[in-house]
Amino acid sequence: MAIYQNDQASRQQVVEAIQSLVDQGLTTGSSGNVSVLTNKGMLITPTGILPKDLEPEHIVHMSLDGETDTDQLTPSSEWRMHADVYKNKPGLEAVVHCHSNYATILACAHKSIPAQHYMIAATGSYEIPLAPYATFGSQELSDANLSALQTSMACLLANHGQLATGFNLEGALKLAALVEELAHWHWGALAIGGPKLLSKEQMDDVLVAFASYGQQEKRKDLTDGNRLDK
């Protein structure tokens, strides 16, 4: 059973999440979008409304096949990316997409984020991969995103931004903030000659350590079989 429902409380959490992206400087205007999985589909932010103006009743409930409930606003144009994550990555119940500054700089330069820092392992992987460019809102973009997420819980979207997933909304928001922080560090390291990367063995040690507490067991289950060393 999904931890979120099509109710006022869950809708309020989605509102607060998208507003948090703005407060943290991870997105501007109406460019970001947030969703959570429900038992009968997902709740997702609508298109074209500034986060500061959002109310719980504005959040859209829809099926994972694109059918909105009656009397709903138009969902985010990026709804396919969210729905396809839920269809193909069991256990994940929240998705955050934003155009945070440094992640978007790297995405525009077509650069993934390698193992320059051990916190890369928070994504369950050895890197934060880059999904190839496709038009926003298209099935091609969703397919590219899903392919990148086979090896990580977050990715960069070429010439676009970043996407982070989570077992809950808090986790997805924290991961989006971490992706931006890691992107900032990588941008800075590139400016002074490039980072010295951790070895596969060093990252293996970190991945094992991350898998030994809390919800990281879930992360291990999601990424095993799709690791870059397989």
Rank of each mutant, 00 (worst) to 15 (best):
N88T: 14
P114I: 09
S199M: 10
L149T: 05
Q12E: 11
P129Q: 11
E127K: 12
P46G: 10
D69E: 14
L207D: 06
M153H: 11
Q13N: 08
S212A: 14
D224C: 05
W185L: 15
G161R: 02
G193K: 09
I49G: 01
M203F: 08
E170G: 10
A183T: 05
K87R: 13
S100M: 01
A154I: 05
A122I: 00
I44W: 11
D65A: 09
E67V: 14
K40S: 15
K111I: 09
Q5A: 15
C108N: 11
E170W: 01
I113G: 07
P132H: 13
A131K: 02
A17L: 09
P129Y: 07
I105E: 04
H110N: 15
T165R: 00
A154V: 06
D53C: 10
N33P: 14
L157P: 06
W187N: 12
H184G: 05
T165D: 08
H184P: 00
H186G: 06
Y126I: 12
N6V: 10
P75G: 10
Y4Q: 06
G214M: 09
A158N: 09
E16Y: 10
T28P: 00
S100Q: 05
N101M: 03
D143S: 03
A164T: 04
G32K: 04
E181N: 10
V206F: 04
W185D: 14
E181H: 13
T104D: 03
N145K: 01
S31I: 08
N226V: 02
K174H: 12
S10E: 11
E57V: 02
V206W: 04
T27A: 15
D7I: 03
